[in-house]
């Protein structure tokens, strides 16, 4: 059996389903370089016309917040109810509001 060799780096794959939509994360894959990552992404994630455009990015290049819902990072938006339209009382008979 072949000994452990350097692994192809990990890429995250983002696909735009159709024009007018954002690219959405669909999964990851290993590839030796950016161009091959694109080709692999096409074969692995778009065999049935799932996309019109693909982004691939090395996983190591992504900076992420902590996923914890109680993360203080998101606290500033928690108490600002006045940013939502429902905060304002407008009489029901005022049209087009």
């Amino acid at each position: 059996m072949t000994g452990v060799k350097a692994e192809w780096p990990l890429y995250e794959v983002f696909v735009r389903g159709k024009r007018g939509l954002n690219h959405v994360h669909v999964g990851s894959l290993h590839a030796p370089d950016d161009q091959m990552a694109l080709r692999h992404a096409r074969d692995v994630y778009t065999r049935r016309n799932e996309g019109v455009s693909i982004w691939v990015v090395r996983s190591s290049a992504i900076t992420a917040s902590s996923p914890d819902e109680k993360d203080p990072l998101f606290a500033p938006s928690g108490d600002k109810v006045y940013r939502h339209p429902t905060f304002y009382d407008i009489p029901a008979d005022v049209p087009h509001m």
Binding site: W55, V56, V57, R58, S60, A61, I62, T63
Partner: peptide, 9 residues
Amino acid sequence: DSAGRVASA
């Protein structure tokens, strides 16, 4: 590798 690469890619 940096976040900048995401944007440029």
